[in-house]
Amino acid sequence: MAQMIIANRLHDGAVVFLTAKEDWVRSINDGLILEDEAEQERWLATAKTHEASCRVIDPILIDVVVGENGPRPTSIREQIRAFGPTV
């Protein structure tokens, strides 16, 4: 299952995704998609150093499905985080 790393930015709480350049971006379409487990663990470890250096809070791996419109989280909760409230 493809995964991405999502977190909340510390200073403003915004939902952000980790990129290959180790930036955190608002749009899921610009985030890094991780296909294999070794990669996923390695990048999560990197994300956790960003938590320690006060850039983000609680980075986690989430499952995504990559479609023609870009990646989409599989869980409702993470969809809501990525795309906003449904109401």
């Binding site: 709480g13 915004a14 939902v15 809501i80």
Partner: peptide, 9 residues
């Protein structure tokens, strides 16, 4: 009164 929620504080 400040929570960290899904989208923001």
């Amino acid at each position: 009164g400040l929570y960290l929620q899904l989208h923001a504080y």
